[in-house]
């Protein structure tokens, strides 16, 4: 066997290996894997025992998420204010833009990694993902519909009665089945494939650049006590020193009436910031630089200001150089797979 033969055999071998490799991948896409916790993520908060994710349940949830009949005049879907290409936010809108061009008072939050969330909304009040969709469906500025009307609209559509039957064993459309289907879709909206995640999971030799690494070090020093890895939020409610808004949104206090909850809002995740501007509960900052400068120089001593922001000086000192490096690190949290995942798109 000469050298030529060897090369031919080698190439043939490569082809065979390539062929073998491609076929299981195709199968993998066809098989629905259900909810899978990313290796670098902590334990979930959602009660999967009472609502295991199935292929039919997930698909039904996705149909409902993109169903305009959830709104009074069949114009608004969940996806209207939670747009996948904007990491399931309403990019470009400071506050949510709902039915009849009505405007809400808060920035549309991302449908992302909600299986790890213990409380919902910028101002809390909801602690079970299954009861969260009641708010946007019934709120005057959002979908302005009542639940029974939604169910009646869906009951008249065979594509829904058959899908409910497939997902829950009954054609009956009720609050529990309806909400659980939506939850099954929402918990599957997992963002865990940013560059950061690949570095942490040591996948494919991906590593931070020197600037990203310096930014990461600064981040851990200055930001991570609230924006805890790997979800980049600790899920708590805090007052980050924003000037009180013209509508005097009191945040968590609205749901609890506890004085020490005034002006506290849920700490948002820092994942996918590239796609989710503007920032803060009322979308007041158009750019990341605006956010960082807020922490550097604009923090105000409003009631219940978080102690972490009121030490020797108000806020967190950040030089221009530090801001650049932190921004470089935050850029590694953008997850293109998430915003392009065909499973999560309207079909």
């Amino acid at each position: 066997m000469n050298k030529k033969h060897f090369i031919v055999l080698f190439c043939l071998g490569l082809f065979i290996i390539a062929c073998k490799k491609s076929s299981p991948i195709v199968e993998e896409i066809e098989t629905f894997l259900g909810f899978q916790k990313p290796a670098n993520f902590p334990a979930t908060a959602y009660n999967f025992a009472s609502n295991p994710v199935t292929k039919d349940g997930f698909e039904l949830g996705r149909m409902l998420f993109y169903e305009p009949r959830l709104s009074r005049n069949n114009t608004i879907t969940c996806g209207s204010c939670h747009i996948q290409s904007s990491a399931f936010t309403q990019h470009g809108h400071d506050v949510s833009h709902g039915i009849d061009d009505r405007l809400g008072t808060r920035n549309s939050p991302p449908i992302m990694n909600l299986a790890w969330s213990k409380a919902f909304n910028w101002g809390g009040g909801v602690y079970d993902l299954d009861t969260q969709p009641i708010i946007p469906i019934t709120t005057h500025e959002e979908m302005d519909e009542n639940l029974e009307n939604v169910y009646n609209k869906l009951r008249a559509m065979p594509k829904y009665t058959s899908k409910f039957k497939a997902a829950f064993g009954t054609e009956e459309i009720n609050t529990a089945n309806f909400m659980k289907a939506l939850s099954q879709f929402m918990v599957m909206c997992i963002s865990s494939n940013a560059k950061y995640d690949k570095v942490m999971r040591k996948e494919g030799g991906v590593s931070f650049t020197a600037e990203e690494l310096e930014g990461y070090t600064l981040f851990k020093d200055k930001c991570s006590s609230c924006h805890t890895e790997p979800l980049f939020t600790d899920g708590s409610f805090r007052n980050n020193g924003l000037g009180i808004s013209p509508v005097n949104d009191k945040g968590l206090y609205t749901a609890t009436l506890i004085e020490t909850d005034k002006y506290k809002f849920k700490v948002p995740s820092l994942r996918n910031l590239k796609y989710t501007a503007p920032y803060m509960h009322d979308g007041r900052f158009l750019t990341l630089n605006g956010v960082l400068e807020h922490y550097n120089s604009e923090v105000q001593a409003t009631p219940n200001l978080d102690p972490l922001l009121s030490g020797n000086r108000l806020g967190i000192s950040l030089t221009a150089n530090e801001k650049t490096k932190i921004s470089a690190f935050l850029n590694t949290l953008n997850d293109e797979d998430f915003i392009k995942n065909p499973l999560l798109a309207e079909q």
Binding site: S50, Y127, D128, T131, L147, N174, A176
Partner: peptide, 14 residues
Amino acid sequence: TMDLSKRTGVLDPA
């Protein structure tokens, strides 16, 4: 605060 499947009839949020 119970699972929605345990809140039917007059307790149904709908």
